[in-house]
Every structure is written in structure tokens, then in C-alpha cells.
Design a binder for these strands. Structure first.
Length: 443
RNA sequence: CGGGCUGUAGCGCAGUGGUUUAGCGUACCGGUCUGGGGGACCGGGGGUCGGCGGUUCAAAUCCGCCCAGCCCGACCA
């Protein structure tokens, strides 16, 4: 996997915002090894079963065959819990709230740029708690952190909810996720938060002495988001002109392009550069005085890169002491007094941020339907599809049947789904519905 | 891992037995003009035709094997 500078800059912006949110919720960062003894992975039965086909294994080191192969981490639960065993003795050591920023590797048969790469960058939080309730609370807290990040920074609306048994993380008791709708109406899982119960604590024998003096296994969570978010951002907002970067994450928020002729070049550049210097004080701003390309060419180029606001300054603006502002999301242009430009840019950036979110949310809502008739569901997914809210009996058989007939899977069981299902008849089986499930074709 | 397709200049492609030195678009370099939505003209540089082997007087072109990439499927967070 290679991430070039413009893409990596987006990831850096994301990292910073997410990391701040982790710190605000009491987490600290640490680092654990890339190579994990194979036996560690095998300690937790479902975990090994889930990951075995995707592991890259190191068999040689220092020119010699290793006695025990090392796997390249597909996730770090096992190596981290082997350490937690040493760090945790008492309830006073809990909760342990650690996050790691790292690369991981899963040997995918079929990769897709940013969405499914063999190597990817992510963060993985691993927490240990004295009680199940506290761990469950942590699981939902971090799910909400992801929801807020997606909505407030990426301007990407997401559904939250519980994964089915079939879809959950290998080794988890419960898996929750945030799910977004891409512009082709397919779902993208954009982040997960797992309640691990005592599974890993038992596999790695991590016990602690409770306040009452008893010995108990600790309760755990893990949660992560990855460079897949870069793909999610691209696929949520881009248009035919290229990337549309939400202002809060855009590596460059405002680009100033001077428009000059040979005879007035010096004056225009001076006017434009003075403005750029003022914009730099408040925004992530760039300036493009390059003489090699025409203004029109530069407009297109910076649009392709997704910069939210473009400032055009030419002789006409100079005469009138104005500048032209163009917004990336709608293409709309406006003229403002040069002195008021920084404030006008600030207002525009705010407006673009909220417009992008609203537009994405409308699109998702317009492409979400409640469907309780199976023929209608099949027709829905044979056509354009989208999200379908469907009364489901909770059985893996029904879930599998829908997948076979429509290629759609259950993305999530939303928070209030059981209440909403009461009194309804489940699809296919005709039994009383236990859940309202969100079905969609997914990446 | 199965089925299909494609490898020719940085990128996109044409050329499919012999046709000056393998072309076209774009990008790149130099120059002049131009400059408010991807400019014009002039001049220029850049190629193991994916690799290896074979057929032939002659191979980018035909044959075999290999490698890589893409699409579909199976698998999968």
C-alpha cells in the first residue's frame, strides 16, 4: 500500500482529530510489536478461526528458520493481552485505557484501494475494566466518538448499531459499528467497537483482585478505525470534478489564485500575495502564482484536489478592492471586499461543512426504505437499492437467504430496533419479528 | 483459488507477419504570444513493444511457457 502526500495529509488530519477525542475520553497511546508469536493468536479459539486465512507469517529470522513462526499482526488483541496479564493485578490498576496507532496486515484475496488493502494504517483501542457494565459503557462511548468524528469532521452521516453473530468480530461478544452510505448507495463499515467480555482475559489468564478481595477475570473492549476512512471520505463527497474535502479535514482549506497578464503581473501578484498572507493567519491556505498554467487550468486542478474555497484575484478585483470567492461544493461564486475576505472565507467554510453533511444525509434518507415484503426487497436490491429497514426474525438462516437472493447483508441492528419490530411479521419466515435490521449491499 | 480480459513513451491508446528511424493524443523541455473556467503556434527530448524461449529470409505482430495488472466469482472485516 502506498499513500501519496495528498492522501496522507487527509489521514494526518483525521488522526489528529480522533486522537484528541481519545485523549478527552481518558485514553493514552502506547506501542506494541508488529510480530506476534503464532501461538498467541491460537489462544482464543474464535479469534484464530477468524483470522487464520488472512495471516502473513514470518518463518525465518537472522538467516535461520525460527523455532516458532511469527505472524504479522492482523490486530493486536493477543500481544496486548499477553502484556496486560503482567500489568494488571488489582482493581486499582483498572480501568486500563490504551490506544495504539499502527499498521496491520491481512492477506486479502481481493483488494480495493483504501477500502480493503493488505496493509493498512489504523488505531486500535484496547481497554480493560473491572465490570461488564463498565466495559459495555466504554464500547458504546467509543462508538459514539466514532459517530461524532464521522458526522462532525467528515460530514458523513452514519448509522450506529449492533452487528449480527455472522458479521461480528472474531473473538468479540458484541460488535458495534458505524455504517455510512456511499454515493452508489452501497454501505461502508467505517468503524467498529467491540465488547470482548472476558474472552481474551480468560485466554491470557488476566485476573485482578476486586475491591471485595475476590479474584476475577477483567472485562475488555477494543475499537478501531483505519485508512478506510480516507476512502469513505472520498466516496461520500466527491463529484465529477474530483475530490470534495470537508473544510474541517481539508489539508488545504483555501487556495488563492492570482489572475494576471504580462503587463500587470507585478501589481496583481503583490495584491494577491498580501491577501494570501492574511488568509494564512486563520486558515490552512495555499497560494498558486505559477506562470506555467492558465487560471482556468488552476481552477480545475485545485477543484480536483478538493480545496473547499478558492479565492480569485485579478486586475478587476484590484480596481474595486474586492476578491472573488468560489465554493467547491456548489461552484457558486461571490464577490466580497478584500478587507472582509478572511471573515467571508470563515463563514463559507462553516457553511460548506454543514451543507456537505446535510446533502449526504438527505441522500441517505432518500435511499432508505422500510420494506416488509420479500418480493419487494428483492426488487429493491435488483434495482438501485440502498438501505432497507426490514423486520427480521433473528435467524442466521433468514440472513443467509437474503444474502443469497439479493447480495445484501445485515449492516447493523439500530439502537431502538427491537422496540420498533414489536408486532411486525418477519420477512421470509413469517414469524414474529425480533429486530428491525438494516440490509444493504456492502463494500 | 476459478473464469474472462489486458500488457507498445510518464499516462491513455493505435499498429496484429515486410511499408524510410514504431505512431497518435496528452504530459514533459525551450521559445514567442496569451492569461477572469483545463490556451495558440514553432522547435525539441523520451521506447529492452511485460519477460524468456521458439517458428520464419523477416516478429510489437504467429506459437509455447512465465510474470504483472484489471474485471467477475468464491473467500473475507
Amino acid at each position: 500500500m502506498v499513500i501519496r502526500p495528498r492522501g496522507y495529509a487527509l489521514w494526518e488530519r483525521m488522526q489528529r482529530a480522533i486522537d484528541d477525542m481519545f485523549k478527552e475520553t481518558g485514553h493514552v497511546n502506547a506501542y506494541f510489536p508488529l510480530l506476534i508469536p503464532e501461538s498467541f493468536i491460537q489462544r482464543e479459539a474464535e479469534h484464530v478461526e477468524g483470522f487464520a486465512p488472512e495471516l502473513a507469517v514470518v518463518t525465518h529470522g537472522g538467516g535461520e528458520q525460527l523455532e516458532e513462526p511469527l505472524v504479522i499482526r492482523p490486530t493486536s488483541e493477543t500481544i496486548i493481552w499477553s502484556m496486560y496479564k503482567k500489568w494488571i493485578q488489582s482493581y486499582r490498576d483498572l480501568p486500563l485505557l490504551i490506544n495504539q496507532w499502527a499498521n496491520v496486515m491481512r492477506w486479502e484475496k481481493r483488494t480495493r484501494l483504501f477500502l480493503r488493502t493488505t496493509e493498512f494504517l489504523w488505531q486500535e483501542g484496547h481497554t480493560a475494566h473491572a465490570t461488564a457494565d463498565e466495559a459495555r459503557e466504554e464500547t458504546l462511548r467509543m462508538l459514539d466518538v466514532y459517530r461524532r468524528f464521522a458526522e462532525e469532521y467528515m460530514a458523513m452521516p452514519v448509522l450506529t448499531g449492533l452487528k449480527t453473530e455472522v458479521e461480528k468480530f472474531a473473538g468479540a461478544v458484541d460488535t458495534y459499528s458505524i455504517e455510512a452510505m456511499m454515493q452508489d448507495r452501497r454501505a461502508l463499515q467505517a468503524g467498529t467497537s467491540h465488547f470482548l467480555g472476558q474472552n481474551f482475559a480468560k485466554a491470557f489468564d488476566v485476573t485482578f483482585q476486586t475491591a471485595e478481595g475476590n479474584l476475577d477475570h477483567v472485562w475488555a473492549t477494543s475499537w478501531g478505525v483505519s485508512t478506510r476512512l480516507v476512502g469513505a471520505l472520498i466516496m461520500t463527497h466527491s463529484d465529477d470534478k474530483g475530490l470534495v474535502a470537508p473544510p474541517r479535514l481539508a489539508p488545504t482549506q483555501v487556495i488563492t489564485i492570482p489572475i494576471f497578464k504580462t503587463k500587470n503581473k507585478a501589481e496583481v501578484l503583490q495584491y494577491a500575495e498580501r491577501l494570501h498572507q492574511r488568509l494564512r493567519e486563520r486558515f490552512r491556505a495555499e497560494y498558486d502564482p505559477d506562470d506555467a498554467n492558465s487560471p482556468g487550468w488552476k481552477f480545475s486542478e485545485w477543484e480536483m484536489l478538493g480545496v473547499p474555497v478558492r479565492v480569485e484575484v485579478g486586475p478587476r478585483d484590484m480596481e474595486n478592492n474586492t476578491v472573488v470567492l468560489a465554493r467547491r461544493d456548489t461552484g457558486e461564486k461571490s464577490s466580497v471586499a478584500v478587507d472582509e475576505a478572511p471573515e467571508a472565507v470563515a463563514v463559507l467554510l462553516e457553511d460548506i461543512q454543514s451543507s456537505l453533511f446535510e446533502r449526504a444525509r438527505s441522500f441517505r434518507d432518500e435511499n432508505t426504505r422500510e420494506i416488509d415484503d420479500y418480493d419487494e426487497l428483492k426488487a429493491y436490491f435488483a434495482d438501485e437499492g440502498g438501505f432497507a429497514l426490514v423486520p427480521w426474525d433473528g435467524s442466521p438462516e433468514t440472513e443467509a437467504q437474503v444474502k443469497e437472493d439479493t447480495k445484501a447483508t445485515i449492516r447493523v441492528l439500530p439502537p431502538d430496533n427491537e422496540r420498533r419490530a414489536s408486532g411486525k411479521t418477519a420477512i421470509i419466515s413469517g414469524r414474529p419479528a425480533r429486530h428491525m435490521a438494516v440490509f444493504a449491499k456492502a463494500y
